[in-house]
Design a protein around this nucleic acid. Structure first.
Lengths: 212, 212, 212, 212
DNA sequence: TGCTAAGCGAGACGGTACGTCGCGTCTTCGG
DNA sequence: CCGAAGACGCGACGTACCGTCTCGCTTAGCA
């Protein structure tokens, strides 16, 4: 990845005001959470950010791009580096979700709900959104499982490719279709009932009973 | 309480032409599959149905309502009565998907992709869409599992509530986010690697290896 | 004028209810006076007449035709036979307008105002409207003048063709453009100041002073 | 009290492009002359002006308002300052109409015909149309007569208020109801047969014979 | 210090789709 | 076959939003 792909700042002229980026993204997320993607308008966002529309379009080429970028900011994308390490896969998977306060969860719910529209707006955009929002999530799942295999916790024959999508898929479904928040109990239940069994980590005193 | 709770006004006036409903819904699904929700226009649908726009709006109050209704029709909602009965849960779950020809699958993919926008347009609408499209799917999963329990194939302690959502969730994710079609191999892999293990039906000669 | 131009009432079937004609025309005039031609709708007229729209269109081929017919009814078109005969042209011309009560005048004002739209809707229609509404008026002017000439009151060289249009034109202008009612004073002023001088009947003790 | 009582908001924002006003008004007049008010559509006007519909509606709140304004522009309102001055009232009145080329006359005919609809659309609109189109015409008549009085050509007792309306009224009638163009012969006949006699300017070698 | 190029808020602009409404026709029922 | 009721095809209306384009002003960085 070279640096030179960034020097079109020809010469002279007022530099962009970085404070506008933050204001616009914040306004976009607010409006998105309040009204959903369809009903959110660029004028609304500009007005709430105290910006002109040209300032928005100077930074992002379209409403969809702005939203993808904004939403990408909110998911404090668990950096693959500092994933939790509790010693067991179960502990790791639960820890991954533990930080989510209820408020944060509600906010993500609202935004995610408002986001679904994007997925069909444009195939390329759907890919971008998927890559920006979901892939990091899938990647962390995969990485935790790989660590478990390295520890010998999981056998070498297990196929991660499908199982790594279980939690992201079901989380997305719950957020978007069911519009229900993600809480620790639900995550624990999902891990114990679906993910660990699929990985061959049987029912050893895990949560196996009924749940919502 | 009788079923025919439908005699709203009638007395006088030309009755609605039921053939228009069908024509409109068909046209809507065509256009939806071809262009996606955002680019589909009501004029387009009306023209293709050979109808006036007023005829559309007399039946559905908005574009979104029309689409939700139309999409609800397409799911040849597996009638809970005639679900497959192959003797084993695995056979049943695979048979559930077997009818899907590739063409049908591609069509569902196109429509589903075009539909995602709707989920955020209006919470009530999202509920309606969810209820019309996904709940029947979840219900058949649940019912097949219940039959397996009745046969003694699955223990009484297993929690269906979460597991019944695995296949619908992952199917939706694949269709909407990944935009990949559903084929039998993928379904078999999903069933063998995730669903059956979660139900306690271990790896007895099942597809357990890697897959896409 | 032969009778045979009227016998398409083929055979059998319920005869038309003549009371509907009157109800429809009355309703049309009401709505026309209240809202003007543009804002008057056929549904409105039908509803007020307690009729179905088909009943309207069975009698008149279009909204414009209905209105022309209806307005033609209101102008109790001075039958050329029983024109007033006071012995002098001035007396005749004034008598022609004398019947108009203020209420009648206001009603004509309202309707005429609502009518103007018609004149441009369709050239043929404008002709029809002109023929039905204005020509009889012009004809009575012409006829009164002709009688005056026969009496020797007016010389044989005077050209009626233009002068017969003076009162109709100025009346129409006042009603449509100025939206002011026609009253006896105004008519007398018009006759004395414009019409009679044009006919060579000079200012002999006539109203010659200023007026509105 | 200064004249420039016009500084509504300004501060910021792109100013309205005055060239759009002209283009829109021109397009409106073209379409109006070609098709009449009823058949003229705002999309048509916008397309021909190379403008968006919003640009039309930003300036005029409705189709009717646009047309009234546009038609008001067409009347190359004989500036009261440079009215003809031939030395006699008859010469002045004829000169007033002389500039009208046949093409201009046909154009005015087409537009005026297309305009009549408006008169009933809304009383206020009718007033506006009257004020914009007819009042200047009446005013020039009145002014020419006043000059004749100042010259001693016309006696001080003659009432202009009614006579000034004769030519405008009869012109409007001819244009709108009869849909016939205005030509010099007809004007001369009108002046000689009606207007001058009403002013007490007798038949001294004037056109007094029959005419259309 | 003053010049210049670019950023900025504001909002007009060309398009395009929306959802509504009116016309004139057609289709049911009951008389 | 008439009449009330009202659905139908068509097409224009006026509104709203997108993404672009001016305006007049402000704000660096280079001279």
């Amino acid at each position: 990845m070279s640096d030179d792909a960034e020097a079109p700042r020809s010469r002279g002229g007022r530099p962009r005001d970085p404070s506008r980026d933050a204001a616009i993204v914040a306004a976009a997320l607010e409006v998105l959470a309040e009204t959903g993607y369809e009903r959110m308008t660029m004028d609304q966002v500009a007005a709430r950010a105290g910006a002109g529309k040209a300032t928005l379009y100077r930074r992002w080429p379209s409403k969809a791009d702005l939203v993808v970028h904004a939403v990408g900011q909110v998911g404090d994308t668990p950096a693959l580096a500092d994933l939790p390490d509790t010693g067991t896969l179960r502990g790791d998977l639960l820890a991954l979700m533990r930080d989510q306060t209820p408020e944060e969860s509600a906010r993500v719910l609202a935004i995610t709900g408002g986001l679904a529209s994007l997925l069909s707006a444009d195939p390329a955009l759907a890919d971008a959104a998927g890559a920006a929002l979901v892939e990091p999530f899938v990647a962390s799942q995969r990485l935790l499982m790989q660590r478990a295999r390295d520890r010998g916790e999981v056998g070498p024959e297990v196929d991660f490719e499908t199982i790594a999508f279980v939690t992201p898929s079901m989380t997305a479904y719950r957020l978007i279709v069911q519009r229900r928040a993600i809480d620790v109990d639900w995550i624990r239940h999902l891990v114990d009932v679906v993910v660990l069994p699929a990985l061959g980590l049987g029912s050893d005193g895990l949560d196996r009973g009924g749940g919502a």
